[in-house]
């Protein structure tokens, strides 16, 4: 790997020689100042709003603070997080959310993008329709769906079930149905963005590949399997990772729709962080769990990238 990288381009190889002659005057003359002027605002914004809070979280996870008096407590916050009986429940719920999201939320936009790509005259209109839910403000969408899931006979979904002589279901009030119900809402609210990204990728696949496959007698399914999916693999890999990271940080939907109920069946790790910070006022514990979540996601991402490295390079 190292060898490959060092011989990638000649410019990289000649960089040390260039650097040796670089003086501040030369650097400024070559446009360094303007580069700095362009880059500095962004670096400052990042430093102030991203890197500083991250560093501050690391520090705060080792402290106990009421924002008036602060004391160092070492890893005590981490120990208290690990001792919380609700952590296991929240972690397992989060894993379940992720599994349901992968099962429902991941394939939906892919299939929809493939379908829209097949349209000719109405493709733009279909794209707009698919993207429409994303425009609805998240809280409004969640509250709408909360109403749809009303467990009585008058709830929208139960009314529909009633037409077929089924139901009514308790939906969010049922511990087994609550997670998939929330994921269906989250999928509806988020699939538009993914669909547009997949659609853009599909548009870059050369039509000759499909034409050749058609001449060879390949079916629609085998064209999808042998051409579409492999051609989209880069996008698919990233989108999958982003989706998993996003679901691990799920908060708004369960917070508004169920408040973590019934019986803590929809409490997520992020909701637990929120409770530590805003119900208990314990920022030390909240930041400690935030760092644990970040570490878990980093490890998960690394393992994922390692496991899929062959596919992403081929």
């Amino acid at each position: 790997m190292a060898l490959a990288r060092s011989t990638d381009t000649g410019t990289v190889a000649s960089a040390p020689a260039t650097r040796r002659r670089m003086t501040p005057a030369v650097w400024a003359r070559r446009g360094g100042l303007s580069t700095l002027a362009f880059g500095l605002p962004m670096v400052l914004v990042f430093a102030l709003f991203s890197w500083w809070p991250i560093l501050r979280s690391v520090v705060m996870s080792l402290q106990q603070t009421n924002f008036i008096v602060t004391e160092w407590v070492g890893v005590e916050n981490f120990a208290r997080v690990m001792a919380d009986p609700l952590l296991g429940r929240a972690a397992w719920n989060t894993v379940q959310f992720t599994l349901w999201s992968v099962a429902i939320g991941f394939p939906t936009p892919i299939l929809l993008a493939v379908f829209i790509a097949e349209l000719r005259r109405t493709r733009a209109f279909a794209s707009v329709l698919a993207y429409l839910p994303v425009i609805v403000p998240p809280v409004v969408a969640v509250l709408l769906w909360k109403n749809f899931y009303q467990p009585g006979d008058s709830g929208l979904f139960n009314t529909v079930l009633g037409w077929f002589g089924a139901g009514p279901l308790a939906w969010l009030n049922n511990g087994d149905l609550a997670i998939p119900s929330i994921i269906v809402e989250a999928t509806w609210a988020g699939f538009g963005t993914a669909t547009v990204i997949y659609l853009a990728t599909l548009m870059t696949i050369r039509t000759e590949l499909y034409e050749a496959a058609e001449i060879d007698g390949a079916s629609i399914l085998s064209r999808f399997w042998h051409i579409t999916l492999p051609q989209m693999r880069g996008t698919l890999l990233i989108m999958f990772l982003l989706q998993v990271i996003g679901v691990f940080q799920l908060f708004t939907e369960p917070y508004i729709m169920t408040g973590g109920g019934p019986e803590n069946r929809t409490v997520t790790v992020l909701m637990l962080i929120y409770r530590y910070a805003f119900v208990s006022g314990d920022y030390g514990r909240a930041t400690a769990l935030s760092l644990c979540l970040a570490a878990a996601l980093a490890v998960l991402s690394a393992v994922y990238l390692w496991a899929t490295r062959r596919w992403s390079q081929s």
Binding site: Q150, N173, T258, G261, P262
Partner: peptide, 8 residues
């Protein structure tokens, strides 16, 4: 007591 038991 109705049917919805997730009330804030």
């Amino acid at each position: 007591m109705g049917s919805n038991f997730l009330l804030n």
